[in-house]
């Protein structure tokens, strides 16, 4: 993965999946990415999982930036995958295109980019659920997203309730720092 900092060089058409277990904060990640994309003037459409699957079941959200009409990503077409749990690789990796960027919240290395969100959260005195923003920061730092770290940090600051704002930004920055 080539690290990009130049906003102009980022793709304006990108399909991302966010895969996790209910309660891990996949919806929050999805909304932050969508808000950041919309704030940057991109056409964004997303799809979310609601209902019973949110009770700890496998969930997936999709974010499409660019001139798309429908909210779903076909198999083998996603550019980037954010996996909040390594177990989900077996279930949702087929959405990724060959060579697509895969970021996983896990301490175990594999054929993907990984960051141990739970360990980092503990190091920074954050609750385990902060692993979602750590993973987002990590992916943004590695240049895997259509939107840069600065824009994402702005949206996190703007959209997070005040009492969680500082902790959320700390989690995002921890992930960003881990990306090097």
């Amino acid at each position: 993965m080539i690290k990009t900092t130049d906003e102009d060089a980022r793709p304006t058409r990108q399909q991302i999946i966010v895969s996790g277990l209910g309660g891990q904060g996949a919806l929050t990640l999805t909304r932050l990415l969508a808000e950041a994309g919309a704030a940057a003037g991109l056409e964004i459409i997303t799809s979310e999982t609601h209902g019973m699957a949110q009770r700890g079941g496998t969930v997936i959200s999709m974010i499409k930036a660019g001139p798309f009409q429908g909210p779903l990503i076909p198999a083998g077409e996603a550019d980037t995958g954010l996996f909040l749990h390594p177990r989900n690789l077996a279930v949702h990796r087929f959405y990724l295109k060959p060579g697509g960027a895969v970021f996983v919240n896990t301490g175990a290395a594999g054929d993907y980019a990984n960051v141990d969100g739970h360990a980092l959260a503990k190091d920074h005195g954050l609750p385990p659920v902060a692993a979602n923003l750590i993973l987002l920061g990590y992916a943004a730092g590695r240049g895997g997203l259509f939107i840069g770290p600065d824009s994402l940090a702005e949206v996190i600051a703007a959209k997070t309730p005040e009492r969680f704002r500082e902790a959320s930004l700390r989690a995002f920055n921890a992930g960003l720092a881990a990306a090097g």
Partner: peptide, 15 residues
């Protein structure tokens, strides 16, 4: 070529 989604995933459970 059709990509078959793999079966599996965690079933939901009471919190």
């Amino acid at each position: 070529p059709a990509l078959q989604p793999p079966a599996g995933g965690d079933r939901p459970t009471l919190c």
